[in-house]
């Protein structure tokens, strides 16, 4: 560009529809309700909405708390979850032990607090894995279309066909490894097709926009188009779905642990505790050992699902 002429700094205000070329300042600038000069993207608009949404605030605070205690459980629980005294088996609530004791004589409060770590870790890791695999596979299928779309979509369908619980039981009872990683891997391997389908649809929608054509016309590479133009515009539904799935993964981990194929003692997890509490006649004699881990689990799942709902509402322009 060689020496462009400098138009006058301010357009003539008395001629708002001046036909003179270069007089764009006559047109009204339309900052959408924000103070002029401050940029507001879809995300900042969504954040603006979310801060005023009580459902979001409550669920976000709850999740922050859960994450905090899963990292530093000793913040609110001073004892060790594995220091149990059989003599206090099934004892009720008492001072210093508000939730009472379980069959093994372990403090239920301490175990419930420590159980958050396994549940949150499984939920977060499985969700990250699912989001990554699903977005990459669905995104590539949607972006390249044709043969790759057909191939990747059929692979997705094949994984979709495996029943989640049954598949997880079969795989986990075969691999007989302890710890959270087998559970994370099995959940991720069986759940990514949902994200892949959503990502594929979102990418196909974003791909058809003119700004993608404009980028192609400028000579942008596939990677640039995917990462700068398509991904930022297609990621919102994936994030919403992933948040909701995180809650269901925590429930799934508890289910698998209850069935005896997920986490196993001595790992402390809500599922393990629920499983231990529901054997025999203990529920009738000591309902507290089932109630507290189950309540913590339900609350956590609920928090993530509510958060996902709130984020979806905030990101959906049709609901504004």
């Amino acid at each position: 560009m060689s020496e462009p002429p400098q138009p006058p700094p301010v357009g003539p205000p008395e001629a708002p529809i001046a036909i003179a070329a270069g007089d764009g300042r006559g047109e009204p600038a339309t900052p959408t309700g924000a103070e002029p000069g401050r940029a507001r993207s879809l995300w900042s608009d969504a954040w603006h909405d979310l801060r005023r949404n009580p459902v979001f605030v409550i669920s976000a605070l709850l999740i922050c708390f859960l994450v905090l205690i899963s990292i530093w459980p000793s913040l609110i629980a001073t004892e060790s979850p594995l220091r149990c005294q059989l003599s206090r088996s099934l004892e009720g609530a008492s001072a210093g032990h508000w939730f009472g004791f379980d069959t093994q004589g372990c403090d239920v409060y301490t175990r419930t607090v420590y159980g958050a770590r396994a549940s949150i870790a499984v939920g977060v890791c499985a969700t990250l894995g699912v989001a990554l695999v699903g977005t990459v596979i669905g995104g590539l299928a949607g972006f390249f279309g044709g043969f790759w779309d057909a191939l990747l979509s059929r692979v997705t369908d094949m994984f979709f066909g495996i029943p989640l619980i049954l598949g997880a039981i079969v795989f986990l009872s075969m691999i007989k490894l302890s710890g959270i990683w087998p559970v994370v891997l099995v959940i991720a391997a069986l759940s990514w097709p949902q994200i892949a389908r959503i990502a594929r649809g979102a990418v196909i929608t974003a791909k058809q926009n003119d700004y993608v054509q404009a980028a192609r016309a400028l000579g942008a590479s596939h990677a640039r188009i995917l990462l700068r133009h398509i991904l930022p515009n297609a990621i919102a539904p994936v994030i919403v779905m992933a948040t909701i799935m995180l809650g269901t993964f925590i429930a799934l981990e508890a289910t698998l642990s209850y069935l005896g194929v997920g986490l196993r003692p001595p790992t402390v997890s809500w599922g393990v505790d629920i499983s231990a509490a529901s054997t025999g006649m203990q529920f009738r004699n000591a309902p507290h050992i089932l109630l507290y881990p189950a309540a913590a689990l339900s609350l956590t799942v609920l928090a993530f699902i509510m958060l996902g709902d709130a984020v979806r509402d905030a990101l959906d322009p049709k609901l504004r």
Partner: peptide, 19 residues
Amino acid sequence: LEVVGLNPEYINRYAHQFS
């Protein structure tokens, strides 16, 4: 931006803030 008759200070705005 100046060549096409827009205020160069608009550089940090998003597209939806324009007519």
